[in-house]
Design a protein around this nucleic acid. Sequence first.
DNA 1: GCCGTTTTCGGCCCGACTGTTTTCAGTCG
Length: 577
Amino acid sequence: MPADPSNLEIAAQFDELADLYELDGAVVHRVLAYRTAAKTMRDSTVSIAGLTRQGRVTSLPGIGKTLEEKLVQLLDGGAINASQKLRAKYPPGLLDMTRLPGLGPKRARRLFDELGIESLEMLRAAADGQKLRDVKGFGPKFEASVLPSLAAGVGDRPAQRVLLHRALDVGERIVAALRAHPASERVELAGSARRGVDAVKDLDIIATASDPGALVRALADLDEIEAASAPNDNAGRGRTHTGLPVDLRVVSPENFGNLLQHFTGSAAHNVALRETAVRRGLHVSEYGILDDETGETLCCATEEEVYERLGLPFVEPELRENRGELKPGFVPPRLVTLADIRGDLHMHTVASDGRNTIEEMALAARDRGYEYIAITDHSATHGFGDHVTPDDLERQIERIAEVNARLEGIQILAGTETNILPSGSPDYEDDLLARLDWVVGSIHTAFGTPREEMTKRMVTAIEHPWIDAIGHPTGRKIQRRQPYALDIDAVIEAAARTGTMLEINSAPDRRDLDDVHARAAAEAGVLVLIDSDAHGRARLEHMRWGVTTARRAWLTPEQVANTRPWPQFAALRKRAC
DNA sequence: GCCGTTTTCGGCCCGACTGTTTTCAGTCG
């Protein structure tokens, strides 16, 4: 019997079904119900297939009887009946067409019905032959705009997003430059970058200014901006040299809070926020809060005021994903910050594939204010010429002890990042591991292992007495590599049962565990660890991205192990328990 | 299709922009 589909695979099925229903002309709220449900499934930390089999899937918000039936069809028969019917009715090329700018499901459907256009290629031919203008609602302007879109490949693939650290690198420089402008009063980054998501598609900047027009024009002159336009005195739009769009909105000070809140999003948070407001007779937009009773619109100079006026506790930007932050009874958690971090327990030196020595890493860590670090070079079977044999590790332990004795103000722990072999065992003998202060176990090979086997492999490693923590537990690379097939519930359960810590790896293209899984782990009682996995001293600063993920996971300092001084931390390792 | 501190039925966020239109539907964020 084939393995159950993953949450990601199931969610994709329901997203497709939403698209198909939309093409079929279903009422928008029904389509929206499918999209919302797909997102719930994608974000779920427990197995949707498992919940469905247990008959508990309707306990998830937005999933009722009908969706449950379709889930059962998918699990039992491998497909949803409605999807099969609609796929036969609408060619796959129609869905590609709806991704073109200005061509949504309604208009694509009209072209299909009236001209039989069912692919991007047919659309191109019709635009070339000036056939589109014969259809009601279409004209020469649309025909003219379709050809460049098609030539640019729009519709063929979703737009690539930019990793957060790259987006913020340029975004924070733009904000700093605008703040330095004489006309500026207040400048803040908004949008998904402010929420700290994995990757962004544009940058949103909100400002107040004594001379809005001057500030908007200043955007175009920044070194970071390749091209810019200014539709009016209050809005500028530009593009960085790497093609990242930048939007600048200038607003009057009394409205700053409304606009910042609006443009920080997320869309899901804002929709839920407005729905909550409507129930209280209030209507929220970027211009203010309209009160049904008085007919007055209330402007908010700060974001705090927006939430306060709605009778809600303030929600930190990282939490604004409609994952419970607007539910009654929400108590804002005291989120972990970079300043809470006292040690970094995953880094590499020249002994394996790092660029710096033990001492160089230690001094850089001390400069960052850390109290302790662990040197965790790759292990015996890592390969690529950067493995550390058992003999090498013996010498490395001595070198670490020597530097540790010599350096003041930082404790250096002898550790390893040992490979988890396909069997689930580490690749050093236990007596050698026992001589180390700290052991991270990570998977670096056989990524294609089937889910059940991979889960067993990971759980075996978690149960090993000398493995203190699991590094980058799912192996994902943002936008480049899917996580390996893994039953994350089982991994979290095993970690909680054995007292094994799970890492949030801070490498900006990993951030693994992700926010959803890190939150599930902490809620299950797993101690989460945030590490840089630095391969050079400059990369110690990557800790920031792991902390951002931890904040998106609602984590408090207590839930993050390395916010403690070393003696308290050491006592939390399972070997000490 | 989902859901309930107005509701088990009748709602379900808000506004700007676009291209095509004499008042607006569809798309987008």
